[in-house]
Design a protein around this nucleic acid. Sequence first.
DNA 1: GTAGATGCAAAGTATTTGCGACAAG
DNA 2: CTTGTCGCAAATACTTTGCATCTAC
Lengths: 136, 136
Amino acid sequence: MSSTIETKCKKKGVKLTDQRKIIAKVMSDSNDHPNVDELYNRVSKIDPKISIATVYRTVKLFEESGILAKHDFKGGKARYEELNEGHHDHLIDVKSGEIIEFVDNEIEELQKKVAEKYGYELVDHKLELYGIKKKS
Amino acid sequence: MSSTIETKCKKKGVKLTDQRKIIAKVMSDSNDHPNVDELYNRVSKIDPKISIATVYRTVKLFEESGILAKHDFKGGKARYEELNEGHHDHLIDVKSGEIIEFVDNEIEELQKKVAEKYGYELVDHKLELYGIKKKS
DNA sequence: GTAGATGCAAAGTATTTGCGACAAG
DNA sequence: CTTGTCGCAAATACTTTGCATCTAC
């Protein structure tokens, strides 16, 4: 069974090399938002010969092909996640670094309205909430 | 007349050197969101002896003191702006790079609600809208 | 067969830091 | 005075790239 990412690659005419298949699989299997280092480590366990340059090249390619999303959360390194149908935003635990995905249609609608108010068509947006876990 | 930034520095116990005064003044006079390079260029016109290291150190210090806000918009370099009372978010023209500041209290409220829904207290957030100017 | 991909190491960017000289409080 | 700052150049962190070799289609 080939992964969703592989299917997308074929659709986009992206050549499917062994390295890309491995990177695709690791991303599919990841439920978190790995940065390039973490991704490289996971990939290396499957094929230690893959170079970090290839990982960088591949995530960039996948991002341009709409297969992965890149996030520049606070703290320097870019993080990646698989891009599926449902769009979502992120709530980040400032203590633990844990990342929660959420969707709020009301906010999405308001964003469009704000853009329109200024004469713009919204093509993209970034919403990140940073929070501290409440004692329950 | 000393700038608002200088007043804040005294309040926070930040030592006021000539270099910091100049950087504070340039930031106060800037209505855009300069990155460190741009800021360094502007500062150099007033005092060419100020080093870029000092600019980096100063914006970092000012950020930690709540005097400046740092933004990691798309495109690599961090941008800074003076932090005044009114909080606002940004609408970025993807073609021209122009940045529009806006406030939407409804969105702000909803963000708090979302965080609470997941058991978090919202301590910070980042909202960036990317848009294309409509033909009017 | 050929255009494009890979690995390696070297090169870029953006930012930080060690250190001796210097200045603010 | 003493603590913290400055300028400089070297160092770091993350990411990109040139080139010879290799591989998917």
